[in-house]
Design a protein around this nucleic acid. Structure first.
Length: 493
RNA sequence: GGUCGGUUAACCGAGUGGCUAGGUAGCGGUCUGCAAAACCGUUUACGGCGGUUCGAAUCCGCCACCGACCUCCA
């Protein structure tokens, strides 16, 4: 169980070699969605980033437990101020649904979209509402340790107390004194001792539907608490990797660190990984800017900023073509380029089947393998991996052109490498409908191609060109080859 | 205002102190009856100004701009 994987740890701001705490086991916790509306483009990024990590660690023969939560309670509209309505409760009220109906509806679409993007299911997908007891127990510990205090039926985390012994803000580079001095309104307008204290438990107002009994009040848990409680439950007090979007660094992950550290007396997470954000035409994606795109809209093209539909694999390829710690900008131009590049990659792999091995090889298969692994080992550098794979595609095409050669064992190895890296690790898949598997279609095309060949032999090019043009109109491309035998393929949608 | 990250050729997007990233688009060529595909070649790349260095797009400083989160204001 050896690895050469380096990952960028947000905590140290450096690439560090990944050494699991208890090999061969690896524990990963990733912040999942709050299920109060459709999954959007922003959800695709962490899902694909950590899917790649999950696939790679599994490929390295680790036994990976990948936990990704579903937030179905406690995420308020204005989390920092601890004000505003619970997002799910609000949606339920607007749509006249039970909160759990809202949750079910959007969990379902989230799962469907994640399947479309070909992300593997996490090992465990725990929900906050399923772990109320664990959260209450964690609050009790925090109160006992002196870091939680009750106020009018709610319980808050005492940031100042925590900061005396530990350092609040180390993940996001914030200094508590600065945060406080930047806040002018510290008057006792609410139940907190300090405006940066965050809720562990909120007392529910009489009309609030989502409520559970607790020693302090009928209420509901604070947003940050679920991740601490569930990661401890399923991955242990100390675990390997915690992932999520960069936007969650502050305050969410900072609060998680504070809770877990205060409860356990030690650091819980060894490697923090954060994926960067997505922009659309250079702007951040926001409902107010009118460029908020759900995954369903993207896959159907049903949105004003979209010139066409983009397939799930086009999106996956596009996201993988950028490094996960860079922002990635969505535009029609960029997506169309990605679509073509992705098809080129798929066609190249398909072409592998046509290669006839020679008795010699002009390809350095060992060097190729090493470069591919080195790319992933370098903080999951998928764009560099893809650039190597495209070099491989050019080689494949050159073999078919006769300018390069590969022997039988090299060919097997090359096929194996493409399978491993493209399908198993990058998680891409061929989306073209299986034209070659359709017997009847094959027979029909053979007849048409034969007839066209006869026309060509008689130099009746108007006829042969017409056949080719008409076929192209219904989505079939004919390709004439040197030896006179025409090939055909279905056009991608 | 605070913290962090970024500014690379037509577009997207990697990267290293000196060696062609890659994809898409354009241009020229090979092949072809013509196409398509493929292959080969190609287009003022590294925000600005200083500094370190034999040598910097890559390190340091300053400036400009962009983004994220937070704050403020609405």
């Amino acid at each position: 169980m050896q690895n050469n994987l380096f990952i960028y740890n947000t905590l140290s701001k450096k690439k560090e070699q990944f050494k699991p705490l208890h090999p061969p086991f690896v524990g990963i916790y990733v912040c999942g969605p709050t299920v109060y509306s459709h999954a959007h483009l922003g959800h695709a990024r962490p899902a694909i980033t950590f899917d790649l990590l999950f696939r790679y660690l599994t490929h390295l023969e680790y036994r990976v437990r990948y936990v990704r939560n579903i937030t179905d309670v406690g995420h308020l509209e204005n989390e920092t101020l601890g004000e505003g309505e619970d997002r799910i409760e609000k949606k339920a009220r607007q749509e006249h649904l039970e909160p759990m109906e809202v949750v079910q509806k959007y969990v379902n679409t989230y799962h469907r979209n994640m399947d479309q993007l070909n992300t593997l299911s996490p090992s465990i997908e725990p929900r906050a509402t399923g772990h109320i007891i664990e959260q209450i127990e964690l609050i009790k510990i925090l109160i006992k340790n002196g870091y939680g205090y009750e106020s009018n039926g709610s319980v808050y985390f005492d940031i100042l107390k925590y900061n005396e012994k530990y350092k609040y803000g180390k993940l996001s580079g914030r200094v508590l004194e600065d945060l406080i001095s930047n806040t002018r309104d510290t008057e006792g307008k609410d139940e907190k001792r300090n405006p940066f204290d965050f809720a562990l438990w909120k007392k529910a107002s009489p009309e609030h539907a989502m409520r559970w009994p607790s020693p302090w009040s009928d209420g509901f848990p604070g947003w940050h608490l679920e991740c601490s409680a569930m990661s401890i439950k399923y991955l242990g007090e100390v675990f390997d990797i915690h992932g999520g979007g960069m936007d969650l660094q502050f305050p969410h992950h900072e609060c998680e660190i504070a809770q877990s550290t205060a409860a356990l007396g030690k650091e819980s997470v060894r490697y923090w990984m954060h994926n960067n954000m997505i922009t659309i035409n250079g702007q951040k994606m926001a409902r107010s800017l009118g460029n908020f795109i759900t995954l369903d809209q993207l896959f159907t093209g049903n949105h004003p900023v979209l010139e066409q539909a983009y397939s799930p694999m086009t999106i996956r390829f596009f996201i993988l073509q950028a490094h996960y710690r860079s922002t990635v900008d969505f535009s029609n131009e960029a997506l169309q380029a990605a679509e073509k590049g992705f098809l080129k990659l798929m066609k190249g792999i398909e072409s592998l089947k046509k290669i006839k091995p020679s008795d010699q090889s002009t390809f350095d298969i060992k060097g190729f393998r090493e470069k591919c692994y080195a790319a992933l080992d370098d903080d999951l550098n998928s764009p560099v991996l893809l650039s190597h794979l495209f070099d491989g595609v050019r080689f494949i095409n050159s073999v078919l052109d006769g300018s390069e050669k590969i022997d039988a064992s090299g060919l097997d190895a090359l096929k194996d490498l493409f399978n491993t890296f493209v399908f198993d690790l990058l998680g891409l898949k061929d989306e073209t409908t299986g034209a070659a598997d359709d017997k009847l279609m094959d027979e029909l095309m053979k007849i048409i191609i034969d007839l066209r060949q006869e026309a060509k032999n008689l130099k009746q090019f108007e006829v042969s060109d017409k056949i080719r043009k008409e076929l192209n109109n219904i989505g079939i491309t004919l390709k004439d080859t040197k030896d006179g035998v025409s090939d055909w393929e279905k056009n991608p949608l």
